Every structure is written in structure tokens, then in C-alpha cells.
Simulated scan of single mutants.
Amino acid sequence: MVRRMRRLISTVVGGFAALLLVLTFAGAATAAPKTPPAGVDITGHGLDEPLRLRAASHPEYVVAVIEQVNHRGLVRQSGGPKKADLGPKYTVVVLAGDVPKQTYVLYPKAVGGPRVFRPAKQPDRKISPAWYLGRVSMSETLRTAGVPLERTYEAVSGGAGGGERIIPEDALNPAQDIDEAFSELRRLLLLNVAVMLVITIGLAGIALLIRRRTR
């Protein structure tokens, strides 16, 4: 029985150690800077010619604009607003090198909040069309990147009906915010795992001690 308890403790400790290593390496991979796509082209209302942003010269703008169309972090809708409620339209084409890869349509002034539309016809394939709720920072992100939009006050707390604040120019870096959030989550997970490890070892030790005394 004692041998079994020792094997159990060794298995538990080994499992938690492996989990700690996985979380540590995963966190390091997340924190590592990611190379943004080559650039984005923006066309639409008020732009006489395409606004061409490239990672080589404006990496922060490229990352910020792409974050606006990253549908993994957006809420999908069954349908979009009425055409009359969409407001000015901006088409964003994401490039890999000089090759267009993805196309999205942004409506920063749509009634009820910004909207993102992913057309079925993409540069190199066809997919299912989809509508998404856009980020509240869409208008300011586009304006900072060079789109002729008026400065706005963005609601950033509590979603609809939340508080308001002015988003400064140097705060429009969604990629940095996501990295910070993952970093905090990683530290929290590591702390929880460490606590669980200590508790498990303690309980196993108590069980072993009780077993020895009752023999």
C-alpha cells in the first residue's frame, strides 16, 4: 500500500510538473511577437485612392486594422443592419506579400454600433458570408490609420450603455492589449496549478501518514 501511495504521489507530481512546463512554453509562445501580414489596403467613403498600409513602414496600423477584422474575437450575427443604417463603407483587403488574401467590409458608423461583413467572394476562394458586431474602437482605429473620419468618443466599459472615454492615439494597439491579457491569464493559471500541487502533495502526505499509523 505504501508503494502504491508513493507511485500515486509520483504520478501526481509528474503530471503537474508536465502541466506547468506546457503552460510555461505556451505562454512564451503567446508572448512572442508575431509578424504581422505584409499590409492592408483600405478603400471607401472619403478616400480618393486606396490607403495602402504596409508592415514595413506602419506595423502598428496594420496590426490594429487587422484586429478589427479578426472574426475570432468578434460576435457573429444572423444578419446585418438595414442598408440605410449602415453608414459609410470601407473595404479592407489583407495582403500576404503583394497577394490579396482576405477581404472584409467595415461600417464604423452603423446604427447600433460598428459592423463587420465578410463577403462570400474572397480573393482566392469562396466562403460563407457572415456579419459580425464590430469593435467600439473601429472608427478611431481607422481614423488614426488615415481614413477621413471624425474623432469620436468610444464607449469602452460595460458594452452598450457603458461609460465613455477618449481613446488616445497611442492606445490603439489591440495586439498589445491581447498579449497583456494572455500574460495575466498565464500567471494566474501557473499560480492556481502551484496551489493545487501543494494541496495534492499535502493530502497525499497526510493519507500516507494516517495509513502508517493505522497499520
Results as ranks from 00 to 15, higher is better:
38 A>T: 14
60 E>I: 05
50 P>T: 07
31 A>I: 02
54 R>D: 06
31 A>M: 14
31 A>W: 12
57 S>G: 04
42 I>P: 03
31 A>N: 10
51 L>T: 01
31 A>L: 13
44 G>I: 01
57 S>W: 05
45 H>Y: 12
59 P>D: 04
29 A>E: 14
61 Y>M: 10
60 E>Y: 07
48 D>H: 13
45 H>E: 15
52 R>C: 04
52 R>T: 12
28 A>Q: 15
36 P>S: 04
61 Y>E: 12
41 D>L: 13
39 G>V: 01
44 G>S: 09
43 T>H: 06
43 T>Q: 10
48 D>V: 11
36 P>K: 01
49 E>N: 10
51 L>F: 05
32 A>S: 11
36 P>I: 00
52 R>Q: 12
37 P>N: 06
29 A>V: 12
39 G>S: 07
40 V>P: 01
30 T>G: 09
39 G>A: 07
44 G>N: 07
40 V>A: 04
54 R>H: 07
55 A>V: 09
47 L>F: 08
55 A>I: 00
42 I>V: 15
32 A>C: 07
39 G>Q: 00
46 G>C: 09
40 V>Y: 00
28 A>C: 10
30 T>Q: 14
41 D>P: 05
38 A>H: 10
56 A>W: 01
54 R>L: 09
32 A>Y: 08
39 G>Y: 00
32 A>N: 06
61 Y>A: 14
38 A>Y: 05
47 L>P: 04
56 A>F: 03
32 A>P: 02
51 L>G: 02
38 A>V: 04
58 H>Y: 09
34 K>Q: 13
50 P>M: 06
39 G>W: 00
53 L>S: 01
60 E>Q: 14
46 G>H: 11
33 P>W: 03
29 A>H: 10
61 Y>T: 08
44 G>V: 03
59 P>Q: 04
53 L>E: 00
34 K>T: 14
34 K>I: 12
61 Y>N: 10
53 L>W: 01
58 H>E: 13
32 A>F: 06
52 R>K: 11
39 G>M: 02
38 A>L: 04
28 A>L: 13
48 D>S: 14
41 D>Y: 08
53 L>Y: 01
49 E>Y: 09
31 A>S: 13
53 L>D: 00
46 G>D: 10
57 S>M: 08
37 P>Y: 03
